[in-house]
């Protein structure tokens, strides 16, 4: 993988890699609060069926995951655990922040124990706003992320702006 790290990938190879990565995302569910239930509904329930998008929601550990979905309120006590989880994931890794709480603190913007946004600790690729976002919104977030992965240039990974689902 030296090619990837040096950023000198031949174009067809990048394309091939991106297409394969796009449809084989293992998503780790980091459910924290109310949003976790909507995430569960989106990822686990037969009605929304996330697997048709080429996303597998059941990795046994973050070490096998490509994408983590932080859904819910991040508290200061939780921060070290989230940081550690993120560091355990292998590159290339993506983060979806689901819900107002994970985006910015949400209804607890003035609380003494809530972290005002998970992006203070880890870089976030997709923000899905809402309190809670509907499962469809999370699915759209995943689709947008797939779009981005499709056109991604490995070397440029962190330079783009985050996606916001509207």
């Amino acid at each position: 993988m030296g090619l990837v790290e040096s950023g000198k990938m031949p174009k067809p190879l990048t394309n091939l890699l991106n297409i394969s990565r796009r449809y084989s995302i293992w998503i780790f569910q980091w459910g924290l609060a109310c949003c976790a239930i909507e995430m569960g509904a989106a990822l686990g329930s037969p009605r929304y069926d996330v697997m048709r998008l080429g996303v597998i929601p059941l990795p046994a550990s973050p070490r096998q995951a490509d994408l983590v979905c932080i859904s819910g309120t991040v508290t200061d006590k939780m921060v070290p655990a989230i940081r550690r989880l993120y560091d355990q994931m292998p590159d290339p890794k993506y983060v979806i922040s689901m819900g107002s709480c994970a985006n910015c603190g949400g209804p607890y913007w003035d609380s003494y124990s809530v972290t005002k946004g998970v992006d203070q600790i880890i870089p976030v690729d997709v923000y899905v706003p809402g309190c809670p976002p509907r499962p469809e919104a999370l699915l759209e977030g995943i689709v947008l992320l797939q779009e981005r992965i499709r056109h991604e240039d490995m070397a440029e990974r962190w330079k783009g702006d985050p996606i916001v689902v509207t």
Binding site: T75, K77, S111
Partner: peptide
């Protein structure tokens, strides 16, 4: 506990 402590009782005062 406390990983989900959001400080309700304080917030309700304001």
């Amino acid at each position: 506990m406390g990983y989900m402590h959001r400080g309700y009782e304080k917030l309700l005062e304001v």
